[in-house]
Simulated scan of single mutants.
Amino acid sequence: MDQRISFVTLAVRDLAVTRRFYVDGLGWDAAVDEVGEVIMIQVGEHLVLSLWSEDHFEAEIGAISRGTGVPPLTLAHNVASKEGVDRVLETARTIGADPVVEAVEREWGGYTGYFADPDGFRWEIAYNPGEIGRLVLP
């Protein structure tokens, strides 16, 4: 098996709200947009973010574990500067992301903050001055 990820799939409660957030709010282009079922957005050269309505997700995968708290994963979007982090967090705030956690200097040398999409999935917006940070920038 090749060492790569092709799709990241998130089950979402309300696909219309999710579309307004990602497509209308963040300005991302949908490669696939099946109303009521799924939105697929190419987020890398060989990587797709699949936003799948919960009922369609459960029909194929099985029951979703539900509870309180933050989903136990983060999605990260790295940028080339601290100012870039602040700009993305401001955009998230403008389109209604809640919460938006202000960026801070991290002990490992980076600068990161977070926002939540309409389903509570946390996006880390990061400036990572190290080699691994440069690896993921276009």
Rank of each mutant, 00 (worst) to 15 (best):
V88W: 13
A59Y: 03
E105V: 00
G62L: 05
I39T: 02
A30M: 11
H46Q: 15
T94L: 08
L51E: 00
D33L: 06
G113H: 02
Y114A: 00
D2T: 11
S6W: 08
I64H: 02
D98I: 08
F121H: 15
T68R: 11
G109F: 04
I64W: 03
E54A: 09
D14W: 10
S53H: 07
F115E: 00
E45Y: 07
M40L: 14
L10S: 02
P129F: 02
I125M: 11
I95V: 14
T74H: 06
H46M: 12
D86C: 09
V17E: 15
V85C: 08
A16I: 13
R134E: 12
D98K: 12
W52N: 01
A63M: 09
A76I: 05
Y111V: 02
W108I: 06
I41V: 15
F57T: 00
E58L: 03
G120I: 12
R66F: 13
A31W: 11
V101Y: 02
S50K: 03
G25T: 14
A92L: 10
V43P: 14
V70F: 04
G133V: 00
H46A: 14
Q42L: 10
A76N: 11
D86Q: 09
A59N: 12
V38Y: 01
E45V: 08
R66D: 08
I132F: 11
D33Y: 01
V17H: 07
W28G: 01
Y111W: 06
G62I: 05
T68K: 07
